[in-house]
């Protein structure tokens, strides 16, 4: 009956996890996502995995981008993924990791359920395109 036009918007949580104070990259990504028309929720610095999970669940984001430059990805990312699973939020959230991640670890992260790992120098358009194509629908 009502023909309200549906207004889907891609919601992304850009998250900094753990003891890692380098947020320039996260800021640049947040801004680029905004300019691409996404709604970006920025977590701020030094979040525990629990906080990221809480935010991702409550905000019902399509995309969770975790920025890690501390090398602790193998410890932190699994915790986030487990948390998402606990709230039935893993299935329809696209999990991305950005940062300095060795090739071997990349494979491991992907096996865990990370959709893609973006290293330094990745063109912004590539990341945005990937999100547009892969973000789960709501």
């Amino acid at each position: 009956m009502s023909a309200d036009s549906e207004q889907q918007s891609i919601r992304c949580l850009v998250a900094k996890v753990g003891l890692d104070g380098h947020d320039r990259g996260a800021h640049v990504i947040a801004r680029a996502f905004r300019d691409a028309g996404f709604e970006v929720i920025y977590s701020g610095l030094h979040n525990a995995p629990d906080e990221i999970v809480q935010a991702a669940v409550q905000e019902d984001v399509n995309v969770l981008g975790i920025s890690i430059l501390s090398g602790a990805h193998n410890t932190l990312v699994p915790k986030v993924i487990d948390g998402l699973k606990e709230y039935d939020a893993f299935e329809d959230t696209l999990v991305l990791v950005g940062g300095v991640v060795p090739d071997d670890d990349k494979e491991e992260l992907k096996e865990m359920g990370v959709a893609e790992v973006f290293g330094p120098g990745t063109p912004m358009e590539e990341t945005i395109e990937f999100v547009r194509e892969n973000a789960p629908k709501r």
Partner: peptide, 12 residues
Amino acid sequence: SPFTGGAVLGDR
């Protein structure tokens, strides 16, 4: 944004 519709939501 009035131009792209995008937003940065920072209250959290």
